[in-house]
Design a protein around this nucleic acid. Sequence first.
DNA 1: TAATTTATTTAATTTATATTAAACACATTA
DNA 2: TAATGTGTTTAATATAAATTAAATAAATTA
Lengths: 164, 164
Amino acid sequence: MISAIAQAMVIYGVTPSVGRIYGVLYFSEDPLTLDEIKDQVAMSKASVSNGIRELIDTEMVSKVWKKGERKDHYIAEKDFLRNFLNFFVKMLRLERGLIMKALEQTEPIIEELSTNGTDERVTKTATRDLDLMKDSREYLDWIMRLANSMESGEIFDYFPKKKE
Amino acid sequence: MISAIAQAMVIYGVTPSVGRIYGVLYFSEDPLTLDEIKDQVAMSKASVSNGIRELIDTEMVSKVWKKGERKDHYIAEKDFLRNFLNFFVKMLRLERGLIMKALEQTEPIIEELSTNGTDERVTKTATRDLDLMKDSREYLDWIMRLANSMESGEIFDYFPKKKE
DNA sequence: TAATTTATTTAATTTATATTAAACACATTA
DNA sequence: TAATGTGTTTAATATAAATTAAATAAATTA
């Protein structure tokens, strides 16, 4: 099961080692320390430290404090669905940011060429490119509506958590 | 714009070079040959060939036949939303396959330990693990319902393509 | 069928990424 | 404050991935 989880996480862009760290924490009954994880996954402490940081950054793992214990302890966020939604929202926002930035830089220039262009060839392709950019905006709008609904939980109105 | 598209595609796990190939085709007015692409992206023909194959495999590019021309020509699938949905459905199905396989292998064993286990410690953790696996199945069920709605187009009932 | 063009595969190289041992910084306790 | 335990950085190494030139295979034309 841990291997399968690690492999599945690879699809989401994490390295198999990091996936195994998550898998080990997922099935652990208690919070684990860096050293305990290190032993179970057979990696160096530095690697585990980096992996844990990545997992914390993506909110898949959190640090817990155990009284009397000096070492840090970590637990896995066990709600796969939450992890999934977190991942997606982040990914979609990132995509939007990248494309939007480029659109804002290029669209005015193409717009100008399209309306005031001197050469026939130029105005024609500029007009065509503007259409493509308009399509891009619609696409970005759609994925943002999806992302927002994932973040707010509205998506569960359409796809309930439990099938009746 | 081509750079931005390439960068955005990196999020979806393709290499920037392959992203650029797609970007070039996306803004090209006509279908392009391998050599024309090669010149525009400044890569070796072999790399372009591999990149094109990857893009065809993921249905982001298709080969078109131009009469009188010997070389193959390629065009980009311009519907970002379709590309997005294709990608997701494939990804979610892959994830389901991986986890399901592991579940089917391990669940019966843990089930057995849970009910007929001799040691108290064992039966307790087995029962707990079974719960986790049940949660996994529910998660897989949810993402499959999402994937199916993406494939069938049902998702557009809840998230229409054009905002009114 | 031979000659030529085109696309793909292979093997080697380059490049990027992940991993680690060792050094460091920070904290805790005696 | 000294001594030890803990986590993170750093610099070097090992591993994996992408890229290419050259060889091969497939297709087209003369």
